[in-house]
Amino acid sequence: MSRVDLNLLPALDALLSERSVTGAARRLGLSVSAMSRTLTRLRAVTGDRLLLQAGRTLVLTPYAEQLSQRIPALAREAQAALSRADHRFDAATLEHRFTLRAGEGFIDLLGATLIDRIHHAAPGVQLRFAPKPDWNAQPLREGAVDLEIGIVKTSAPEVRTRLLFRDRYVGVCRIGHPLLREDGIDLERWASYGQVMTSRTGEAENPIDAALDPPDRRRKVLMVVPSYTSAMQLARHSDLLAVAPYSCMGNSFMPNYAAANGLQSFELPLALPAFDISAIWHPRLDHDPAHRWLRNQVLGLCTQAYPPQSPADSRRRRR
């Protein structure tokens, strides 16, 4: 296309629409003489007079009449194609299915609010939550997953992350559990009750048992399940104790979630560090406007659901 000058396209569009050199010049912010020279170039390029004098006005030639049906849409399409990607994005007209990977707790407590938020702005968007059997980054690399939400455990050096909120582990039991009848929950009493352990991979290694001191102390794990929501349901219907992230107890949208499900949380008699819940994605989607919009929707939702507890959390969230 070395002989095609796309700068002539908006000029042709203006001339065909205005049917006036003066009007076209005003529309494009050019001088009348500059527009006259452009008309001369357009006549040479197309091999047609395009506009002819008819008294005090200009009229279109038959070929120009044909062009007038095509050029406006063509000019808009060219302008959109050659403008910055951000300017082309419109959530209201977006037709897309995003695949996310998150734990059951996030889906149960925030899934409905997230889709309400997204559907209000982008009715053509669908969310698909894929299973999360592990923390392998390969689905992100291959494009099978657009966004992952959770703890960053991948060793893939190229992935991008953004803090959504800080979380911590708490004990969970049914309302009225015997453990709660006495003041204070010490390590010995807590460990004496049967417990349900959560392990996504089925392995027994987890931060709770790693923090037990002395190292030879063991809690009475009677069941191992793959999700925190399953552990919470078992605790609800038995005297088993569970451990779950505090975020699974509720949020600003569902403040009474735990109590409504017959559960009560308590502070663990263990020194466990807090942990980060992050959005994780592949860098090829960094500047994709639709994906950036999705990330901002998830971040905004989590900021409302779990407000940062300290200035440090706020600074890390903005990074």
Rank of each mutant, 00 (worst) to 15 (best):
G23Q: 05
G23S: 14
A24K: 09
R26I: 07
R27H: 09
L28Y: 14
L30P: 06
V32F: 05
A34T: 07
A34V: 12
T40S: 15
L42Q: 07
L42S: 04
A44V: 08
T46A: 11
L51K: 06
L51G: 03
L52M: 13
Q53K: 07
Q53C: 06
A54T: 01
G55S: 04
R56F: 04
T57K: 15
V59I: 10
L60T: 07
T61F: 01
T61N: 02
P62K: 09
Y63V: 05
A64K: 13
L67E: 03
S68W: 11
S68H: 04
Q69N: 02
Q69C: 10
R70I: 08
R70D: 14
L74K: 05
E77W: 11
E77V: 09
Q79W: 02
A80R: 14
L82T: 13
S83M: 10
R84C: 00
A85E: 13
A85M: 11
D86E: 13
D86V: 01
D86G: 02
H87V: 12
R88P: 02
R88D: 07
D90G: 09
A92G: 11
A92I: 09
T93P: 08
E95T: 04
H96F: 05
H96K: 12
H96Y: 14
F98Q: 02
F98I: 04
L100S: 00
A102H: 09
G103N: 01
G103Q: 01
G103P: 00
G103K: 00
G103L: 00
G103I: 06
E104T: 10
G105A: 06
F106Q: 05
F106P: 03
I107S: 05
D108E: 15
D108Y: 07
L109G: 00
L109D: 02
L109C: 07
G111E: 06
G111C: 13
A112C: 11
I115T: 14
D116A: 15
D116H: 13
R117V: 12
I118E: 12
H119P: 09
A121T: 14
A121P: 09
A121F: 04
A122G: 14
A122D: 14
A122R: 04
A122E: 14
G124S: 11
G124R: 11
G124H: 05
V125N: 11
Q126R: 15
L127K: 03
L127H: 10
R128Y: 15
F129G: 00
P131M: 12
P131I: 09
P131L: 07
K132L: 10
K132I: 01
D134T: 08
W135I: 05
N136T: 00
N136V: 12
A137H: 00
P139L: 06
P139A: 05
L140A: 06
